[in-house]
Nucleic acid binder design. Structure first.
Length: 668
RNA sequence: GCCGCCUUAGCUCAGUCGGUUAGAGCGGUGCUCUCGUAAAGCACAGGUCGUCGGUUCGAUUCCGACAGGCGGCUCCA
């Protein structure tokens, strides 16, 4: 049981034979309304049941409160139903898709003639309020047969399709509409009569009443493919959020605002870090001087760590003749992700979408001995990928990117150890940049799907080695069956940022495809020729994405060691400029990035400017400080340290920067 | 790539129901002010209203295509 869930567990109650869960909850004196209301119960089999569920034998159940993770899902799922009812009230021709709860909210898909406008959403929201207020009851009903279900759902083509999918025995566990051993429908009944207002094919469970929906808001509408496939028609998806109480909705909206303030695209231009000039093309960034410093610092520290960990640095060109990518197989399986070729002197050249083939050629440039393994080749390699126009997004999804890419060539025997130390290395390095909350995803082969390269045993061995490395890290490991590339399984490191959003960072991938394609081999101790195992890995993913993630993680207030400008000296009057220049020069001599603001702004304005630029140290001096031979610090958090002797001030800045501390600085 | 929305000064945004000189704040430049912890004052410069085409006597405004952006879907470092 997760800690999250444990915190919400209420002592179990017994539902006596022939009575309902609601009776038992009321009997136990548990809340039945308000944000902490018990909305469903968990039966001994672990399934969630409506409060109207009746026991056919004395049954011990666990009451589930609305503000628990399961309770929130129920709330949001029920709110999705309310929304669908509102939509069909207002747009009777709308056909229903699916409407599950998601993180922080829910969505529902509709087939409508025209997409929803913001005005439509406002109308839908208004209608939803009426429904919520009217206190409709959710009532479960089970279809006695497939035919009965189909007859009732005759006007809902998508629901019919779901019923049939279920009939096919396909796993539909992720579809809320159908599940378990029966087909059920939820009727919304008017509060004071048993009049049926609306129904939806659904496995439930649901809130007892719409009145329990404390707060909700429709967020946006967008198109989504039916059942997630590009080949299917697009439905209109409406996203909403729902909470047990109004304050929680407010908090959630505040969090979204906070996230918007951290948006690296916005901060990127505010802090003059990078831009995407239209003239260059979509998804192609230029880094301005300040963004350039960020990259240089990030790359520099990474280089240092790689050097210490036995990596060798290589370089490779950005374009190559087609043959290389024919050999590697990229042109057969990655062509749609590549820029089209250019014809030169009778040959076709391609921009490289990946670095691996180049590193392979370096491995193959001469005979290799087992004594050289593991051979770790590292490069900040810039690659170009033709991303579909709709997916390009800030720095996190671009068409030109620089990977901190390495390929490790090792023997089969070395693989497990190498993976283990590699994962440790990855996590340590990310932690040095201030990311510390991780989980891992293990992407494995899905045997029911596409073809795979390599034998079953190779896959097993590599997957096991990855799994062991992951497990030894002690981090949560989320399986991602079928997520592997066809040439090998992988671990990806997901990092949570300062406000809890997760980003895919590093990937560690075992490759069975390329070594044989390029005929790689080395000479073993016994004189035989062996094929090396190849591991691909990128820690930042791409420098561009990493800059974006760091920007959002720190909300632009970078740690002093990364900050493009580490200190600004602010003279209070013109005649303090020389004093500040001298002090700045003494810092600059220690490679501190320091500026003196000698503009004719008032010092309050200079502080405001430095604050907005999120500069770690503001160093101020006026008459008092000049006379005393001191300076005064103001930090980003507004805290101050006044009258610090010059030598001490200098040592303080150096200490904070050189420690690569990711917190502060602050006087606090 | 698909669906919807958006594009006016370096930035954030007004505005034009199709009609002489398109506005504001910030930012920039100049001058005045010389000031102790988040915005001193004044003045000036800056826009062929994303691009191309169409409709019209006349288009920044209406229509279309394209480019770029935003939110999703699919995909992904």
């Amino acid at each position: 049981m997760s800690a999250d869930r444990a915190a919400h567990v209420t002592a179990s109650v017994v539902v006596p034979t022939g009575t309902t869960a609601a009776d038992a909850v009321a009997q136990a004196g548990l809340p039945t309304h308000g944000p902490k209301a018990i909305v469903v119960v968990r039966d001994p089999g672990g399934d969630l049941r409506d409060l109207s569920w009746a026991a056919d034998a004395d049954t011990e159940v666990e009451p589930v409160a609305m503000d628990s993770p399961d309770g929130l899902n129920v709330l949001r799922h029920s709110t999705a139903h309310v929304m669908a009812q509102a939509v069909q009230d207002l747009y009777p021709e709308a056909k229903l898709g699916i409407g599950p709860p998601i993180e922080n909210g829910f969505y529902y898909d509709f087939d409508v003639a025209a997409p929803f406008t913001p005005d439509d959403l406002a109308k839908i929201e208004k209608r939803m309020r009426e429904i919520v207020k009217s206190g409709q009851r959710f009532s479960r009903r089970v279809y006695s047969s497939l035919e009965e279900a189909k007859a009732e759902l005759a006007s809902e083509p998508y629901k019919l399709e779901l019923v049939d999918v279920k009939g096919d025995g396909v796993d539909t566990s992720e579809v809320m509409e159908v599940g378990g051993g029966e087909l059920s429908v939820y009727d919304n009944l008017a509060a004071d009569s048993d009049k049926r207002c609306w129904s939806d094919l659904c496995r439930g469970p649901h809130l007892p009443s719409t009145r329990l929906i404390g707060a909700f808001k429709l967020m946006r509408s967008a198109a989504a493919y039916w059942r997630g496939s590009e080949a299917n028609p697009q439905l209109q998806r409406v996203y909403g959020t729902a909470w047990p109480a109004k304050d929680q909705l407010k908090d959630h909206l505040r969090l979204l605002e906070e996230a918007a303030k951290r948006d690296h695209r916005k901060l990127g231009s505010e802090l003059d870090l990078f831009s995407f000039p239209e003239e260059i093309g979509s998804g192609l960034a230029v880094f301005h001087p300040k963004g350039g410093i960020l990259r240089r610092e990030m790359e520099g520290y990474s280089r240092l760590r790689h050097e210490e960990s036995g990596y060798e640095f290589v370089n490779s060109p950005h374009i190559t003749k087609a043959k290389l990518f024919e050999t590697s197989g990229h042109l057969t399986w990655f062509a749609e992700g590549m820029y089209p070729p250019m014809d030169l002197e009778g040959a076709q050249y391609y921009l490289k979408p990946m670095n691996c083939p180049f590193h392979i050629l370096i491995f193959r440039s001469r005979g290799r001995s087992y004594r050289e393994l593991p051979l770790r080749l590292f490069e900040f390699g810039t690659v170009y990928r033709y991303e579909k126009s709709g997916v390009v997004h800030g720095l996190t999804r671009v068409r030109g990117l620089t990977m901190d890419d390495a390929h490790i060539f090792c023997s089969k025997e070395q693989m497990a150890g190498e993976l283990k130390s590699l994962l440790r290395f990855v996590l340590d390095l990310l932690a040095d940049y201030g990311l510390s909350d991780f989980y891992l995803e293990l992407s494995t082969r899905d045997d029911t799907k596409a073809k795979f390269v390599g034998g079953f045993e190779e896959w097993e061995e590599a997957t096991e080695a990855l799994r062991q490395a992951a497990e030894e890290s002690g981090l949560d490991l989320v399986p991602d069956p079928g997520g592997a590339a066809f040439y090998g399984p992988k671990i990806s490191v997901q990092a949570k940022d300062a406000i809890g959003r997760t980003w895919q960072m590093s990937t560690i991938q075992v490759d069975f495809q390329l070594p044989p394609r390029f005929g790689l081999e080395y000479q073993a101790a016994d004189g035989t020729r062996q094929r090396p195992i190849m591991i691909h890995r990128a820690l930042f993913g791409s420098i561009e994405r990493f800059v974006g993630v760091m920007t959002e993680h720190y909300a632009g207030a970078f740690p002093a060691w990364l900050a493009p400008v580490q200190a600004v000296c602010i003279p209070i009057r013109d005649d303090h400029v020389d004093y500040m220049n001298d002090f700045a020069a003494s810092l600059r001599a220690e490679r501190i990035r320091v500026e003196v603001d000698a503009s004719d702004d008032r010092m309050q304005k200079k502080i405001r400017n430095a604050q907005q630029q999120k500069i770690p140290f503001m160093i101020i001096a006026g008459d008092q400080d000049v006379e005393a031979g001191t300076v005064s610090f103001r930090y980003r958090d507004g805290s101050q340290r006044n009258g610090v002797p010059l030598e001490e001030a200098r040592a303080h800045v150096l200490e904070v920067v050189r420690s690569r501390a990711n917190e502060g600085p602050s006087a606090a």
